[in-house]
């Protein structure tokens, strides 16, 4: 598998071609990357596009399900939060 590089909130991460963004983040050791309204951390729950817990912003497009999107080399991924700004 061809290695690819993406960034998460500016930090570089490597994975391999064919991985979903969720798979790449989990394989990199992350467990959560989104905040619920209360500020509680969330990551993957259902893994098949049903629960919307794993939403991220990909290249400026908000609310992308990380478990349903293949990571592409150079993707700029940013985390999302539903919590009110402090």
């Amino acid at each position: 598998m061809r290695p690819i590089r993406i960034s998460l909130d500016g930090d570089p991460l490597t994975g391999s071609d064919g991985q979903t963004i969720a798979g790449l983040l989990l394989a990199a050791g992350l467990r959560s990357w989104r905040r619920a309204p209360s500020g509680a951390p969330r990551g993957v729950f259902c893994g098949i596009g049903v629960c919307f817990d794993c939403l991220v912003t990909v290249n400026g497009v908000r609310d992308v399900r990380a478990c349903r999107s293949r990571a592409r080399d150079g993707d700029v991924v940013t985390t999302q939060s539903r919590a009110e700004a402090p």
Partner: peptide, 17 residues
Amino acid sequence: LPGVFTAGAAQALAKGE
């Protein structure tokens, strides 16, 4: 809590990736 998955999620990530 992060780290709690459906069994289907574990299966999809293991089998698919």
